[in-house]
Design a protein around this nucleic acid. Structure first.
Lengths: 182, 182
DNA sequence: CCCGGATGAGACAGTTTCGTCTCAGCGGGT
DNA sequence: ACCCGCTGAGACGAAACTGTCTCATCCGGG
């Protein structure tokens, strides 16, 4: 009965984003396994974080692939991405908050993700869909921030999980202000 | 030549939001002082974090006061708040990310802040300024997320500091989509 | 010029956490 | 029914961090 590596990583991400000082013991307990077992699967804390980063990047890139960012209106592409990234939102939040300790390889993956999302926003701006007074870099960072904020709110029970795609995409796209027309 | 307590706390916040596992030695070095001096001003790590929380809450509430949230259009009030909270953005980001380990007194302060911002969004919704399909609780969390994201981007040099109020308020209010009219 | 207060560097013991190990228990597959 | 592999619990030394201390230095005020 092999331990569910994926489950361990996800609960670790959920715990560590909110309490980065958590002990290996805490992480193990949060995943419902023993500390010894945790060490059997991840050589140490460093290896655990690396696995977390690798999984987060992998899943985010997979979500980018599934969202087909180059197809159709940029707004629709963004909605597809938000929906596709939902399962990885916790991991992504971890990556965003802890990105001070990135090694080179993680940095490379992160830059790939950044570039693809920025390109989407740029495409939207050039196509006249998105406003041009907010730079793509900021829109990208804001997207990360909103994904993280929504993931945390859901984790803490302040929002319903099923609202994730709507809340995140709607706020990023339309903002809080009531649309002028409509 | 007393150590600049405020400067120490701000650099500590900047460091700890991005690497919560940072050592007291790291914190001291980030502030440009010795570890012994850091301990002279803050009895220990716990005391440092408490001071950080207290300052963050105090400054955020002061910003809320200055913004006069109840005056005039909700949109303008929000812009005033974003502008007023800018100096405390780093502290606020720390509070948001680390709010798992809040003690009761910090929780109380945080709840006060939450209530005031949520009330602003509710007022805007009831006045027809803000859309009603996004709950005030989410708008509040999103605001925190955007403030944190913008503060980090500026810290890392990806955005210019002077754009903080515009970027943050514009995205939250208007979103990325190009306004239908105008 | 001298002095007092504050600082940085480093030593020190105490504590926490880490990583490894052993051992007994459990469960699935044969 | 019997292994074999995986697991949890706990012990253990090693390492890292913490908090306190001492001491030399620096700086400004008197």
């Amino acid at each position: 009965m092999a331990v569910d590596r994926d489950h361990v990583l996800r609960s670790a991400a959920a715990l560590l984003t909110r309490r980065a000082s958590a002990t290996m013991d805490d992480v193990a307990r949060a995943a419902g396994i023993g500390r010894a077992t945790l060490h059997r699967h991840f050589a140490g804390r460093e290896a655990l974080v690396k696995a977390l980063e690798a999984l987060g990047i992998q899943e985010t890139e997979a979500a980018l692939d599934r969202a087909r960012l180059d197809d159709g209106p940029a707004e629709d592409a963004l909605r597809r991405f938000v929906a596709a990234v939902e399962p990885a939102a916790g991991l992504l939040a971890f990556l965003v908050t802890e990105n001070q300790l990135f090694e080179d390889d993680v940095h490379a993956g992160w830059n790939r993700i950044d570039a693809r999302i920025s390109a989407l926003f740029r495409r939207g701006q050039e196509g006249g869909e998105f406003r041009i007074d907010l730079p793509p870099a900021w829109l990208t960072e804001a997207l990360y921030g909103l994904i993280g904020a929504c993931a945390w709110s859901i984790q803490d029970g302040r929002l319903a999980a099923r609202d994730f795609p709507y809340m995140t995409a709607e706020l990023l796209l339309g903002g809080a202000r009531r649309s002028v027309s409509t």
